[in-house]
Nucleic acid binder design. Structure first.
Lengths: 197, 197
DNA sequence: TATGGATCCATA
DNA sequence: TATGGATCCATA
């Protein structure tokens, strides 16, 4: 899988220039690069059937790479001090601070919750940094209908930029298939993510 | 239908004390009060089957009341100057300003988008005020699974309170059934909302 | 029971 | 094609 865009939605303080971010960023990029399809290929080739591919296996492949190769923790329940919204997809501890990652394969509305959650963590100071990974509109066209995608979330960016954060970083990675081929199988629903690593 | 809670999530400026808000608030409250079930009843009686009632007809009933009895406009496409996220459920013009209402019957994640949209409108200055209507957790238990509900959205309130708004108001109305009765029919999916007015 | 998600539908 | 929605699933 390739990254077609990477932006800093929120960057208050020095995290973006830190060595920590340099390492974490590299781990995220490498984990995304490790996602291939079909199994055994060296890149991610998608069957271009409109809304014809399931999304679950794609996420699982990346999560497993973060966990097994880079020591991230998955499905971390985060304590926001007061009433806490649930879990984030993956976290890594760096110098006693928490970095959180959300991989968005839910409905586009779910992407709003994901960003809200990450920003809440920054606001509360429980995360020093956070990242959101989601498909480009081009990839979206071949995945389950209404999946979160960058272009549809972008009109809302000003809200999150306008939140009074004292310190924190929020990066967004936009992913896309490497190639299209009508002869590769579509990604089925419920397939084990390990098959894509 | 009854209102069990009403809060001001954002209130910057004088709108909350204005005569405009007094009128709009009264219209919203009256439109909600007009929702009954079953047809012909004077209150909203729900069949207490867990996640056994569809939500579509409930919203339609309130929207129709706002439009036909109070002159609101439905499904308004809002122009946010730049890239615009789509429509809001209902709007009313007051002294050349727009008031926006979102009735939340989608998934809870959709409630995040709804609030984000309203707050974006306040941030851009296209709304002077806005309101969100959504079920209480008690009512939620009898509606389609994972529908937006107040208690599940509340942990995120601090984000929206932390958005730098220059002026604007955002109120939340929490609605609930008036009575429970195992003998009334469950609300089916796709039923015409007019049947509930 | 609670929470995040995955899927497909309706309509402009 | 684009956007908001409605529904039911999976798992801790």
């Amino acid at each position: 899988m390739k990254i077609v865009k990477e932006i800093s939605l929120i960057s208050v303080g020095n995290f973006e220039e830190s060595r920590d971010w340099s390492i974490i960023r590299s781990e995220i990029r490498r984990a995304i690069a490790l996602i291939v399809h079909p199994r055994g290929e060296s890149s991610f080739i998608i069957n271009p059937t409109r809304h014809g591919n399931g999304v679950k296996p794609i996420k699982e492949a990346c999560m497993i790479a973060l966990r097994d190769q880079f020591g991230w923790r998955l499905e971390t329940r985060v304590n926001y001090a007061t009433k806490s919204p649930g879990k984030v997809d993956a976290t890594k501890v760096i110098d006693d601070y928490l970095f959180a990652l959300e991989w968005e394969t839910g409905n586009i509305s779910s992407s709003h919750r994901a960003v809200n959650k990450l920003v809440l963590g920054l606001l509360r100071g429980v995360f020093l940094g956070a990242a959101l990974v989601l498909p480009s509109r081009k990839l979206y066209a071949y995945l389950t209908d209404r999946i979160g995608n960058y272009e549809e979330l972008e009109p809302y960016f000003d809200i999150w930029k306008a939140v009074k954060i004292e310190e924190g970083f929020l990066g967004i990675f936009v992913i896309e298939h490497d190639q299209i081929d009508q002869n590769v199988p579509t990604i089925t629903k419920g397939t084990d993510g390990r098959a894509l690593v």
